[in-house]
Amino acid sequence: MSIRVGFASRSSRIGMAASAVALVVLAAAPFWGGRDDLQLLSQIYTYVALASLWNLLAGYAGLVSVGQQAYVGLGAYLLFGFAILGGVPPLWSIPLAGVIAALTAIPVAALVFRLRGHYFAIGTWIIAEVFRLIASQVSVLGGGSGTSLPAHIVLAIASTRQLRDFLVYWIALALVVVILALIVLLLRSRYGLALKAIRDSELAAACNGIDVQRTKVLVYIFTAFGTAMVGALIFFQRLRVSPDSAFSVNDWTAFVIFITVIGGIGRIEGPIIGTVVFFALRQTLADLGTIYLLMLGAVAIVVMLAAPKGIWGLIVERFGWQIFPLERTVVRDTGSAGAAKRA
């Protein structure tokens, strides 16, 4: 009796179909939405991307970094630097920033991976602060007060403002799709098996032949690559960069942790659900000022008490759903009739 192994399940087939429809609708947003809608959606995409990357790091590899703003800011500054000093088109700068950030992450990893637990978290934060201080010393990029993308570079992207808006929107959508696709491919690979095993039990992973430390370093580098690309994109949208905004621990780490934790850490769907909840709260409560932040805190506490594995964790426990086909399912071929045919 032979067996077959596939990834798809009923819920993932529905999930993928729904995702495809959503993708088409979202790609057409410039034709049905206004300028504000596009901006809001772009922001949502960047948070989905940032949170998905942080989730990979903290949720799967157990690396709780509170310093990912280091790579958001690095990406942003690389984009501005390339454009202003080298005349590199911003579109090219985005992947380039990713590659350089990945290379930068190698020596940084050598440093922070000497630290464990809380010390690792604090170490990453300190590294981000160092990055911020360095950025504020670069006088050609405006030093501490930052700089804007020169008009001629902005104009070179597209001739009209509307076209530019569309283009930036599509790039944001493309980037989040690429990052999610990379994460799905990663998690489906041999490497993803190791990551999921590490997520569930580091001790058992090590005793089953997985080089835990090496896997973690590689995830750290990959995350830096993605995070810097998102950072470059965010500040490309804003057309202005400053050390405080680019290396903000609040915007690029605190909110991202909130999103991942309430959505469901260690699950690829978690950050997506979490981002939707976060923006729904923000859109409805933002007028309340400081109370809004208190409300976010309250929501986080309630979710952590009622559903420690987040909203998606609760759903998985109850229904076993997966939106993305990540889990290997094995089917026995009974030989006859091909009754067990799989997609």
């Binding site: 192994v5 041999r190 098996l193 190791a194 999921k196 095993a197 997520r199 569930d200 039990s201 001790l203 058992a204 992973a205 089953n208 032949g209 997985i210 260690g266 998985v316 889990e327 290997r328 399912t329 094995v330």
Partner: peptide, 18 residues
């Protein structure tokens, strides 16, 4: 110490592959 979030089959695939 099962890999609790993975299927039983995947638990073995991890062990056998790594």
């Amino acid at each position: 110490l099962p890999f609790a979030g993975m299927s039983v089959f995947e638990n073995l695939v991890v062990a056998a592959a790594f």
